[in-house]
Design a protein around this nucleic acid. Structure first.
Length: 479
DNA sequence: CGATGTTCGCGGGCAACTAG
DNA sequence: CTAGTTGCCCGCGAACATCG
């Protein structure tokens, strides 16, 4: 098991934020996710669920098999305080289908995209600061697969899910894929271990693993080596409910549980929960984008015939002739190309020396990516937030994080003259001093700007000098 | 929702001008 | 000479747009 070495430890900063909102102690630090097959939703059950999630501080709760239309759920008389309901079902034929998501109000406003498929899949995309995105995929698969039609439908649902995961991966989103899969991992594993062919239905597990998603409960309980924990208690007890999450989330997971809450809510499934440290996801420390240092110079290899020994050149020609005999002039253009790539290039690399050639990326065009410019933009961004009432409140709440970053920024640009300003020393900020804060931000801005323009000036001069030098060299060569 | 980019109108600052 | 007027430029922020 590979885990990246990001050992995020709870720190003082976040504890302070907790104190700020003293409602639930850990709420701000951990985000809790749960999923339950409700086995037909009723008004009574819904109220019980709300009661339960409020008590346990669950942020996002997935419910499967509601068997109720969106309208019916809308008119349930339930105390929804603090949460929003997003339900989805096939409104013509709601039986045996229906998924629903209960999401905390302060997370709900981060939603920027909702997709609903076949009354069985509910996809919700959330966006957070710093280009962090999270995709929730809640799904409830067909329960029976006795007929070939059912099997095909089941596979169809699976492919939908896989497609959406693929899309999310390509957009670098974190993924939580959870729900009642109605498929047993155990069966997949057995087939795989015995090197038997895997039924199409079960291939979804293969895909999930290929996408580097983790079955959080399997890993937490170490089910591969110990006894399996069941999630469904019917004629046979089986494990068919899962929460699969992307690697980054998995590394930040603190707890994962399979719980029996059947004495509170009547259903034949267990409740699955897990929580993760949300520090870098939902309440991040503000940062501007990091510079991509690896791409600063493009290194290309160029063959250097002039400096290659004569002997090697002769060998090269001999080998080339030998290889050329295998060339198929009737082949397609792709075949010819791959022939060239695999054979000729190989021979060339064997005999001919090559030198490294560094391609400089034009700095003038990439000035927007230098740290100084980013910092400059950051000040503008911060100043704007200060001036707006709503965003000011947000800043006030998270001031310690902003303050920390601002201090970093000042230090990074070694703006000594700014170091002792009022703004940087405050642990709390007051709305009555906004004018003062903006003034000080302007000071920082001015200092940064003068540095920036100096930088640009130097850069420009360098380029001019470069151009002149080059011309001189050309001139000398020509004479 | 958040990040980023773009457009556009407003007002301050400044210079040139003008009326008293 | 001075106080007020006009016109212009520029920077800023609000608002809008776009993407994911």
């Amino acid at each position: 098991m590979k885990i990246s070495n990001d050992n995020t430890i709870p720190n003082l900063i976040n504890n302070n934020i907790d104190m700020f909102n003293n409602e639930h102690d850990n709420q701000r630090y951990f985000t809790k996710i749960a999923v339950l097959n409700i086995c037909t939703l009723t008004e009574y059950k819904l109220n019980n669920i709300f009661d339960y999630i409020r008590k346990n501080g669950i942020d996002i709760m997935g419910i499967t098999e509601t068997q109720k239309t969106d309208k019916e759920i809308k008119f349930f008389n339930a105390d929804k305080t603090g949460y929003k309901i997003i339900s989805h079902n096939d409104n013509k034929n709601a039986i045996g289908k229906g998924v629903m998501l209960l999401i905390q109000n302060n997370l709900e406003k981060h939603i920027f995209n909702i997709e609903k498929i076949n009354g069985r899949i509910l996809i919700i995309d959330l966006a957070f600061r710093n280009n962090k995105k999270l995709r929730l995929i809640l799904f409830y698969n067909l329960a029976n697969h006795s007929t070939s039609v059912d099997i095909n439908n089941k596979i169809d649902i699976n492919t939908h899910v896989i497609k959406q995961i693929k899309k999310a991966k390509s957009q670098k989103m974190e993924i939580i894929c959870f729900g009642d899969f109605n498929l047993q991992y155990r069966r997949f594993k057995k087939r795989q271990d015995n090197k038997q062919s895997i039924p199409k239905m079960l291939k979804i597990f293969q895909k999930l693993e290929d996408f580097n998603l983790w079955d959080v409960h399997k890993e937490t309980y170490d089910m591969d080596n110990t006894k399996e924990r069941m999630t469904y208690f019917g004629h046979f007890n089986t494990r068919i409910d899962y929460i699969w999450i992307s690697e980054n989330l998995f590394t930040k997971t603190s707890k994962a549980k399979i719980m029996n809450i059947r004495d509170i809510i009547k259903t034949d499934h267990a409740l699955l929960t897990f929580d993760f440290i949300n520090e870098d996801l939902i309440y991040p420390i503000l940062q501007t984008k990091k510079l991509n240092m690896t791409n600063k110079h493009l290194i290309r290899n160029i063959f250097d015939f002039d400096n290659t020994e004569d002997e090697d050149l002769l060998n090269f020609q001999d080998d080339l002739k030998k290889v050329a005999n295998f060339f198929d002039s009737n082949g397609s253009i792709e075949e010819k190309w791959s022939f060239f790539k695999t054979n000729l290039l190989k021979v060339k690399q064997q005999h001919i020396r090559y030198k490294e050639f560094v391609v400089n990326i034009d700095n003038g065009k990439t000035f927007q990516h230098i740290q100084l410019y980013k910092d400059l933009r950051y000040i503008v961004y911060l100043r704007r937030k200060f001036k707006k009432k709503l965003s000011f409140e947000k800043i006030a709440l998270n001031w310690i994080n902003y303050n920390k970053y601002l201090k970093h920024l000042v230090k990074r640009n070694s703006l000594e003259e700014i170091n002792s300003t009022y703004l940087l020393l405050q642990h709390r900020i007051s709305q009555f001093l906004i004018g003062q804060y903006v003034k000080e931000l302007n000071e920082i801005y001015d200092a940064l700007f003068s540095k920036f323009s100096l930088n640009m000036f130097n850069l420009k001069n360098e380029k001019i000098k470069e151009a002149i030098d080059k011309r001189c060299a050309d001139l000398a060569d020509n004479q």
